[in-house]
């Protein structure tokens, strides 16, 4: 039996009220679907006395819209869309099939009904040394991420390497999405590529008093060939051991005109694979898929932060990249 620490629950009815509450309550945290924060609270990973429950904002933040913005047309996804909803939404299925595919593979049916897009994008990083009970962690003298000073993954490591484990992040990164954030200092739009940080303790640029309210995907993404893959031990239970998403534009002549590949569940930040410009103009074929696999393997270093053998994850990565790229090309 795991009990929650003593806390107050606040139930705002609008984004404005929620942001005011976040700013006025010290160490307040947001409760959306609760699938990540509640187990973490039960494990004593957060010190907070105030939870801001967002259920009252559902009518305001649960939408899938197509509209024109400053940067042209985009698909806007409200942060309180449930994962289940996104996996079935006709607009998402048609325009962002890789996102629907990723959502279908997140956890089990109950958790998909509860979990939200905003919650998944802000999912706390995971590590075999942190997602354990307080008693378990105390037996090991705790770790860098919470209550301790040493990292058990990287000897003498000074930076937490708990892994970004969200499945929507690599897809939305590959599709060039941005997120809209509301806080007491106003509103800002951050490209998702700048949203995640290299710090496992807090891996986003989101300030404690800010609320992520929307993700927007530029509509040209709907014309991109895209695919997502998730490697895990058991479906419905396990978080990703590796997840990856690829998006590419192919000219009528079969040449690549744009290309993004994102691999995650490695460290705190989902890794957009760098230096792919020279592949633009190449034919979209098996050779390209294999080359992307080699480059991904070179840039990704699986660690012991996830309970799946890092050597295996390193060897399987180029295979998964190759298959996923070929699937995207064929889509």
């Amino acid at each position: 039996m795991l009990t929650l620490p003593r806390l107050q629950l606040h139930r705002p009815g609008s984004v404005r009220e929620a942001v005011e509450l976040l700013a006025s309550k010290p160490n307040a945290r947001v409760l959306a679907g609760g699938t990540d924060i509640v187990p973490n609270l039960k494990h004593g990973i957060y010190e907070t006395e105030h939870l801001i429950a967002l259920r009252g904002l559902s009518s305001e933040l649960r939408y899938v819209r197509r509209d024109g913005g400053r940067d042209g047309d985009s698909i806007r996804l409200g942060a309180l869309c449930t994962i289940d909803q996104l996996s079935k939404d006709p607009d998402v299925l048609q325009s962002l099939p890789a996102l629907a595919d990723a959502c279908r593979q997140i956890a089990g049916p109950q958790l998909r009904k509860m979990g939200t897009l905003g919650g998944n994008l802000c999912l706390d990083t995971r590590c075999v040394y942190i997602n354990q009970s307080y008693f378990w962690r105390s037996a090991l003298g705790f770790c860098l991420k919470k209550d301790g000073t040493a990292c058990h993954v990287v000897a003498q490591g000074l930076r937490c390497v708990a892994a970004a484990s969200n499945d929507t992040a690599p897809v939305l990164l590959a599709l060039g999405a941005s997120v809209r954030i509301v806080g007491p200092r106003g509103e800002r739009v951050v490209p998702l590529a700048d949203f995640y940080l290299h710090d496992g303790i807090h891996n986003t640029v989101l300030e404690p008093d800010e609320l992520l309210v929307e993700a927007a995907v530029p509509l040209p993404a709907a014309r991109l060939k895209q695919a997502f893959f998730k490697l895990r031990t058991r479906a419905a239970i396990d978080y990703s051991a590796i997840n990856l998403a690829v998006a590419l534009a192919v000219s009528p002549a079969g040449l690549v005109t744009a290309l993004r590949l994102c691999v995650s569940a490695l460290a705190a930040r989902p890794a957009l694979i760098n230096r792919l410009q020279d592949l633009v103009g190449q034919p979209a074929d098996l050779h390209l898929a294999e080359e992307l696999g080699r480059r991904a393997q070179k840039q990704c270093k699986p660690l012991t932060n996830i309970g799946v053998d890092p050597a295996y994850r390193r060897e399987i990565l180029p295979v998964l990249v190759r298959r996923t790229v070929l699937r995207a090309i064929a889509s």
């Binding site: 629950l9 509640v38 429950a53 289940d84 049916p109 509860m114």
Partner: peptide
Amino acid sequence: GEPILACITLAQDAQD
């Protein structure tokens, strides 16, 4: 209705 997990839902948040 739809299945959810009661162990990670707060009772106060389930009032609606």
